[in-house]
Amino acid sequence: MVEQSIWMQKVAADPGHSHWYVERFRAMARSGDDLAGEGRLVDAMVPRHARILDAGCGPGRVGGALAEAGHDVVGVDVDPFLIEAAEQDHPGPLWMVGDLAELDLPARGITAPFDVVVCAGNVMTFLAPSTRGEVLKRLRAHLAPDGRVVIGFGAGRGYEFAEFIEHATAAALEPDLLLSTWDLRPYTEDSDFLVALLRAA
């Protein structure tokens, strides 16, 4: 039995948490906030009509932007409420409920590999700590030979950047480029956010 994710523990403790999260981003969208920065970075990495896996897609913000840009997007999230919101707010991609620690899309009839796997929104810090390494291995297994995994999360969330890089290396992923923001600022030892572009080792 896979350990329950930190996200689903939050949902169990507060059944309104997912609703709050969805409405927060809907309100930001209504007010004109820029919610597509992660999608722009990923879009710049691939040709038109790329196959993209949005791992931990939440309510579809990143995957929806990438689908609008003309890509073939599959989004997976452990929270059924977030998947329902993604289907409502961003029709077009294939949105699926699933635990990233058990990710096996070919077994569910979804063709792999993907040109890019994107994991934004601090998803890595919402996983059960015991599953982080396995999740990275499963993302790697869904990646095309020349594809890249793009993962972003903040410091101070219980997952040190150095430990993440160790887990990535163990999953046969190696850093291609490390940034401190989604708008391409360089990563330094003092950075409080990491955007890691990883390629197959």
Rank of each mutant, 00 (worst) to 15 (best):
R24P: 02
L66P: 00
G39V: 00
L173G: 14
R108W: 04
A162I: 01
R138H: 10
G63D: 10
D72S: 08
K10I: 00
L35C: 09
F161Y: 08
R26Q: 14
E134K: 15
Y187D: 12
P59K: 04
R51Q: 09
D33K: 07
P113S: 11
H49F: 07
S31W: 00
V97T: 14
G58L: 06
A27F: 02
M8Q: 14
F126T: 03
S18E: 06
V150T: 00
D146Q: 13
F161D: 10
E87C: 10
D183F: 06
G60S: 10
M28I: 01
V76T: 07
A55V: 00
P113Q: 10
R26N: 08
V11C: 12
H167F: 10
H142A: 05
G32L: 11
P113D: 07
G75N: 10
V135G: 15
G147F: 14
G121C: 06
R148D: 01
D54L: 02
E102Y: 02
L127V: 01
D99P: 02
V195C: 14
L179T: 06
D43T: 00
D176H: 14
A120N: 03
R157Q: 14
Q9M: 08
R132A: 11
R157E: 15
S180F: 08
V76N: 14
E102P: 08
L35W: 04
M28L: 13
Q4N: 06
Y159L: 15
L139Q: 09
I151Q: 09
E68L: 15
P91V: 07
S31T: 02
I52M: 06
S191L: 05
Q4S: 10
T131V: 08
A200S: 13
L66Y: 13
D33F: 02
S18V: 13
A13H: 00
P106V: 04
A67W: 12
C119Y: 02
R140V: 03
S191R: 05
D77M: 08
W7Y: 12
P15N: 06
S191V: 09
G92R: 10
G58K: 05
L66F: 15
E68F: 11
A144S: 11
A112C: 08
P175R: 05
L143T: 07
E134V: 15
G32T: 03
A201K: 04
P186R: 01
A107Y: 02
E189T: 07
W95Y: 13
L35F: 07
R138G: 06
